[in-house]
């Protein structure tokens, strides 16, 4: 019987298969990358086309031979974009900080403290997640308007300083911390608050980072609420401020200038995401793998 196997032939074959598989994978990934990145390219491309060139293109062109930075200049001068930027920054930072405090404390209470009606209260909280945002916006609008808080930072911020979903996420995370750690910390002389601060929060740091970043993105992109609650330019955020370029600009909407503004306001978020994307994924997968 011939037991001599031609190992080199097998190896060659498997190498070839491996290479084919790799090529297919890369082709598919490239195709997908093009689909995903095309809107970004379109945005940047449009932002560097001149106003007249853009309007004269009957069929939009996939490239431009005469890029201009004029649109960026227009975006900042047609409307007080710097002011909007500052507003957005204040809104985002304050909302995120307040929300972190609120959700951490609420999650701690639900996860650790014993009080009557805890389960019912938590169920009610969860059922709030069923109510669509648009419905809540109406009641929030009435409340904030009646309180005379239209066109103010507090009116912008107040409705978003809590999040049922993030409380739920954090509570689940907190509950995964073993009971014995709490007892050990008690024996080691910590108060409840110190335990939260020095043990629970550091242990749940990935989730905290994720929540913070998701909230920042949410704030940065929020449109409907700021649009409803402000009509004073001094309190516009970038999201509804950009609409101003479209409406207040020239006779015809200045799309390239809008795109330039969009590029400018997207950059901070993209940078943020690139820096933290590993942490975001870690937090999301951690939150999701509760056994």
């Amino acid at each position: 019987m011939n037991t001599n196997t031609d190992f080199s032939a097998i190896e060659k074959k498997s190498q070839r298969n491996e290479r084919i598989r790799k090529i297919i994978t890369y082709v598919l990934l490239t195709f997908w990358a093009v689909i995903v990145l095309f809107p970004f390219y379109w945005m940047i491309l449009t932002s560097v086309k001149s106003y007249s060139a853009y309007n004269s293109e009957y069929v939009p062109q996939l490239y431009t031979l005469s890029p201009t930075m004029q649109n960026y200049f227009d975006a900042f001068t047609a409307v007080p974009l710097t002011r909007y930027f500052l507003n957005t920054l204040i809104f985002t930072v304050v909302t995120t900080l307040l929300m972190m405090v609120v959700t951490v404390l609420a999650a701690f209470a639900f996860a650790r403290l014993k009080f009557p009606g805890k389960d019912i209260l938590f169920t009610l909280f969860l059922s709030l997640m069923m109510i669509p945002n648009e419905l809540v916006i109406i009641t929030n609008f009435v409340t904030i308007t009646n309180a005379g808080m239209r066109n103010s930072y507090i009116g912008l911020i107040l409705p978003s300083v809590t999040s049922v979903f993030y409380i739920y996420l954090l509570k689940e995370n907190f509950e995964q911390i073993p009971e014995e750690l709490y007892k050990a910390a008690k024996v080691d002389g910590t108060s409840d608050f110190k335990y939260l601060w020095k043990v629970m929060i550091p242990i749940c740091q990935p989730t905290m980072v994720t929540i913070a970043i998701l909230k920042v993105i949410e704030c940065w992109n929020s449109y409907v609420w700021p649009r409803l609650i402000t009509d004073d330019q001094a309190y516009f955020l970038v999201s509804n401020g950009i609409q101003e370029i479209r409406e207040n600009g020239f006779g015809r909407e200045n799309i390239p200038a809008m795109m330039a503004a969009v590029v400018v306001i997207s950059v901070p978020l993209i940078v943020l995401f690139l820096i933290f994307h590993k942490k975001i994924m870690a937090g999301v997968s951690r939150g999701g793998t509760k056994g």
């Binding site: 014995e180 750690l181 007892k183 050990a184 008690k186 024996v187 080691d188 002389g189 740091q205």
Partner: peptide, 19 residues
């Protein structure tokens, strides 16, 4: 409360602070 008793305790699962 335990923090004022001056006790040291070793738990079955050790309960070390992982971070």
């Amino acid at each position: 409360p335990p923090e004022n008793r001056g006790v040291g305790m070793v738990f079955q699962s050790y309960a070390l602070y992982p971070h």
